[in-house]
Design a protein around this nucleic acid. Structure first.
Length: 463
DNA sequence: GTGAGCGGGATCGTGGTGTC
DNA sequence: GACACCACGATCCCGCTCAC
């Protein structure tokens, strides 16, 4: 990360801060516990206020380090949850104390009247010596968050006490310099966030396009001028006249699932025969993580001979939240078995590739989502799978369609992978930049905002 | 009155068992 | 043996209790 910061200047002189997460700091900086630079949790709603008082409530899930407060709910005090108690004022910084939401941090600018946050937040009120935006960036720094994690307690509710949170040491920096660092980070992180948002939008569009290409190809074919006919099936609509409308069950050699081996999880091994579960099955392929896989013995595998998995099998999740996710077992796949929540659909060689795409298309997914069995739990049975309709082209046309879709999907997945890598790199850069600036590893005192005519102070925060 | 944290609801993935 | 469905464990999150 040092190289990535090379374009920025360093300070002339450094000294050891004596604090692990700060390391060496500029020689004119100091370090202090946060509690000497702020007060915290000063204002709370009194139980004696009128029940009809309208409040603007922010819960812990509505705040992120990148986007700040994303959702404020208007409610009366009477309807508010019991944890809606902390009053937030202009200039405060809210920071989550719950370990599962460590990045819920936001400086508050012009809050609405009666802005109240959950008791899952600490409300930091900076003193005159601490810039609220600089404070928020310090709280977002990787080293600070690491300190919070180390000081968290509790099992069912892992969190850091507010009194412990403010014991954590942060840099003590001349106020004007804090403002300049905050302005610099506002500008630079906003640029990064804009780029991340663009990449996220791109990924969303690519996913939609990929799904649309598959769905269109397996229901309408590739020739836009071909004569169509009504399929007679609601989900299917019109299909090419020379295609036949058929059911999955007419083409299967097997529809079945595995079972839970006797002894359950007790009999799992670190190595042996791969035991595939619904968590391994994704539309973009089987996700086999060697360290997290489950294996069974050869004896149990032989005992469960009916649920052995072979290359060319289509595996479909038939229960739970991942219902409808499917994967085609690739060629030269090692010996494997499945549990009872994974359905094996086995068809003749010529249909494997095409049917795997059909099952992932909107056509079958819509039929799956319309089915609910098993009481209040989602579930698919084999008869229902067998009765799913689809349109079947000739073998030659299937091969053409498969090659076309494979090519298009590969193209989209490559672009998605590139966008994901770019997002990851930008997030790393964002984190590194914040940490470098608030710990004095880079000197931005002479940085000028290119969007302004001069280096006038910008007292606003970006979030 | 305040706030830490216990306990429980919701959800998901998976194991176990009854019925055919 | 195949299938359906109930139960359980893990996890996340929130409501509420009780010590201070």
């Amino acid at each position: 990360m040092v190289n990535k910061m090379a374009k920025y200047q360093k300070y002339a002189e450094y000294k050891d801060s004596g604090v692990e997460w700060l390391g060496k700091i500029p020689s004119h900086w100091n370090s202090k516990s946060l509690k000497y630079l702020c007060t915290y949790n000063d204002d709370v709603l009194s139980e004696t206020i009128s029940k009809d008082t309208e409040i603007q409530y922010v819960d812990i899930g509505s705040v992120s380090a990148v986007y700040g407060i994303s959702h404020i709910e208007t409610m009366t005090f009477n309807d508010a949850p019991s944890r809606a108690r902390r009053i937030v004022k202009d200039g405060d910084v809210i920071v989550s104390t719950v370990r599962t939401y460590l990045e819920a941090i936001a400086p508050i600018e012009n809050p609405p009247k009666n802005l109240i946050v959950s008791t899952g937040f600490s409300v930091i009120r900076p003193s005159q010596y601490l810039n609220k935006c600089f404070a928020a960036y310090c709280l977002k720094a990787k080293g600070f968050i690491k300190e919070v994690v180390a000081r968290s307690v509790g099992v069912s509710y892992p969190a850091i006490n507010s009194s412990e949170l403010v014991n954590i040491i942060i840099p003590s920096v001349p106020y004007l310099e804090q403002t300049q660092i905050a302005n610099f980070l506002d500008h630079e992180t906003a640029k990064i966030d804009t780029l991340i948002a663009k990449q996220e939008k791109l990924i969303e569009l690519l996913k939609e396009k990929r799904q649309a290409v598959i769905s269109h190809a397996v229901t309408k074919g590739l020739n836009p001028n071909v004569k169509m006919k009504a399929s007679g099936i609601e989900w299917l609509g019109d299909v090419p006249e020379h295609w036949s409308v058929t059911k999955i069950g007419f083409h299967t050699l097997k529809i079945g699932s595995g079972k839970t081996p006797k002894g359950g999880a007790e009999i799992y091994q670190d190595q042996g025969i791969l035991f595939i579960r619904s968590q391994n099955i994704y539309n973009d392929g089987l996700r086999i993580d060697i360290s997290e896989n489950t294996y069974i013995s050869e004896a149990i595998h032989d005992d469960m001979s009916n649920s052995k998995v072979y290359s060319g099998d289509i595996l479909l999740n038939i229960t739970g939240g991942s219902i409808g996710r499917s994967s085609l077992v690739p060629d030269e796949f090692p010996e494997a078995n499945v549990n009872q929540h994974v359905c094996i659909i086995r068809v003749r060689n010529y249909l494997q590739d095409f049917l795997a795409l059909v099952i992932q298309s909107d056509l079958i997914q819509a039929q799956i989502q319309s089915i609910q069995t098993g009481g209040n739990r989602e579930g698919l049975n084999f008869e229902q799978i067998s009765n799913f309709y689809f349109a079947l082209p000739s073998i030659e046309e299937q091969e053409l369609l498969f090659k076309y879709i494979q090519c298009k999907v590969f193209e989209y997945r490559e672009l998605e992978a590139k966008a994901n890598t770019a997002i990851q790199l930008m997030q790393e850069r964002r984190t590194a930049l914040i940490s470098a600036a608030v710990t004095g590893k880079i000197d931005v005192r002479h940085w000028k905002n290119p969007n302004k005519n001069n280096n006038q102070e910008n007292m606003e925060c970006s979030t």
